[in-house]
């Protein structure tokens, strides 16, 4: 007896939306990056679910492996940029960065 795929997909949807909400509400740059991780993780959960239940098969797991690697790379650069932002603005509050607009 196994939980049905739609349950997993629902969890993934929750993760995804939480990630998006996190990106839209957080003023802390690092917090936004955490939202990104959530979104990517949601996609990963999808892949694994599909790999288990649909003909996607092993491809799904390979996908998620690559996503993990790429997410790590992206996180590294994003963090470096966030730190750079911090160095220039002396805060990590992204709302302070509104010099560019209009």
């Amino acid at each position: 007896m196994q939980p049905t795929p739609d349950k997993f997909l629902f969890i993934s949807a929750v993760l995804f939306v939480c990630g998006v909400v996190c990106m839209t509400t957080k003023r802390n740059g690092i917090g936004i990056l955490m939202g990104v991780e959530l979104v990517l993780n949601a996609a990963n959960l999808n892949f694994i679910t599909f790999s288990r239940f649909t003909p996607l098969g092993l491809d799904g797991q390979v996908f998620s492996l690559f996503v993990i690697v790429l997410a790590a790379a992206e996180a590294a650069v994003a963090l470096a940029i966030a730190l750079n932002f911090y160095n220039n603005h002396l805060t990590i509050d992204v709302d302070r960065g509104d010099e560019l607009h209009g």
């Binding site: 998006v20 839209t24 957080k26 936004i32 992204v94 010099e99």
Partner: peptide
Amino acid sequence: TGKIRQYV
């Protein structure tokens, strides 16, 4: 607006 959160 220049506000990143609004963009997202």
